[in-house]
């Protein structure tokens, strides 16, 4: 009988919906692809703490402050699960952070937009977390076991985040005229970048085909984007805000909303480092990392001393 090569039996496993675990054989490209995607996801959680952290000290009520603090703490926690999932692929957190700082690893471009008013905290929770959930729900079925399990855990918490954001928007939309204007303005600025979060159209996507074959990704960028639009348009109607897209309309035949053209030039620009906050976000992360170097060294030196003390003379 002909012996199967490992790549074939790997694909058989994937096709049978079995999870791939850290010790299983996997193609190098599968491993590289996963490291790229999971680390990008982890970095996004961590960099995403900045635009929201921007408003903790200015939250307009103590309750809102507590909810925002809890949410940002969750995001840091998601970063931790994802770094751990990524480390199972044979790369250390130090290396991952180095790749972030050198620009080799990316994070979601959405976090290169500024949070200008309190309504932006609402918009980020509602739209950005809302878009992330659509993607993450789909990724619960991803083929790599540790990534899939991290997603299941994360999804439980993300739905609370989205409700928090939507609640801020709803309160502002029924508030004073100024509050309503702030809410609409935040929706206007965050709507299109949120749609870009799903990545290029399927026909243009560099990583998609292989990722789909290996079931790292389960649904295409365009399918996920459409799902997000369909659910969000209705949510906007409920609180009386309008989606900033004149071409948006229900298509009875498709049973989906048709929508206008996405400005991919802006997407590319932000991706290439020219967004409003790219430099600031990266500089902050690098600065914090450098400022913490002496603390990490001290912790290592102390641990080393303790270890030596335990060795009998």
């Amino acid at each position: 009988m002909e012996k199967k090569n490992p790549e074939d039996s790997f694909q058989v496993k994937i096709d049978a919906e079995e999870k791939i675990e850290p010790k299983d054989w996997m193609p190098d490209e599968y491993r590289r692809n996963l490291i790229r995607q999971i680390s990008q996801h982890a970095h996004s959680e961590v960099i995403g703490m900045q635009p929201e952290g921007n408003w903790i000290t200015r939250a307009p009520s103590l309750r809102a402050k507590a909810v925002l603090l809890a949410k940002i703490q969750d995001e840091g926690g998601h970063g931790l699960y994802l770094y751990s999932a990524c480390e199972t692929l044979g790369i250390s957190r130090d290396e991952l952070i180095e790749q972030l700082h050198s620009g080799k690893a990316k994070y979601s471009s959405i976090f290169n937009y500024p949070t200008l008013t309190w309504a932006d905290i609402g918009a980020v929770g509602w739209l950005v977390d809302g878009a992330a959930i659509v993607n993450q729900v789909s990724l619960q079925r991803t083929s790599y076991g540790p990534y899939s399990r991290a997603m299941i855990r994360i999804c439980k918490e993300e739905s609370f985040h989205q409700r928090q954001g939507y609640e801020i928007m709803a309160n502002m939309a029924k508030g004073t005229l100024e509050q309503k204007q702030m809410a609409q303005d935040a929706l206007n600025r965050w709507w299109w970048p949120s749609l870009m979060m799903f990545g290029p159209h399927d026909t243009e996507s560099a990583h998609s085909a292989k990722s789909m074959k290996w079931k790292i990704k389960r649904e295409s960028n365009d399918e996920l984007r459409q799902r997000f639009i369909d659910k969000t348009v209705q949510q906007a109607e409920v609180i009386g805000l309008s989606i900033p897209d004149p071409d948006l309309q229900w298509n009875e035949q498709r049973k989906h909303y048709d929508f206008g053209k996405i400005n991919w030039e802006e997407f590319t620009n932000v991706l290439n480092g020219n967004g409003p906050c790219n430099k600031q976000r990266m500089a902050n992360h690098i600065q914090a990392h450098q400022n913490g170097a002496w603390v990490r060294e001290a912790a290592m030196a102390y641990a080393e001393k303790q270890k030596n003390k335990k060795v009998p003379a």
Binding site: V46, M49, Q50, G53, I56, T57, K65, L69, I72, Q73, G76, G77, G79, L80, Y83, N284, H285, Q287, A288, N291, G292, A293, V295, R296
Partner: peptide, 15 residues
């Protein structure tokens, strides 16, 4: 303390 968010020496300490 909340001013430390995103600025701690390691992610665990941030949390």
């Amino acid at each position: 303390l909340s001013e430390w968010t995103g600025k701690a020496p390691i992610l665990e300490e941030d949390l």
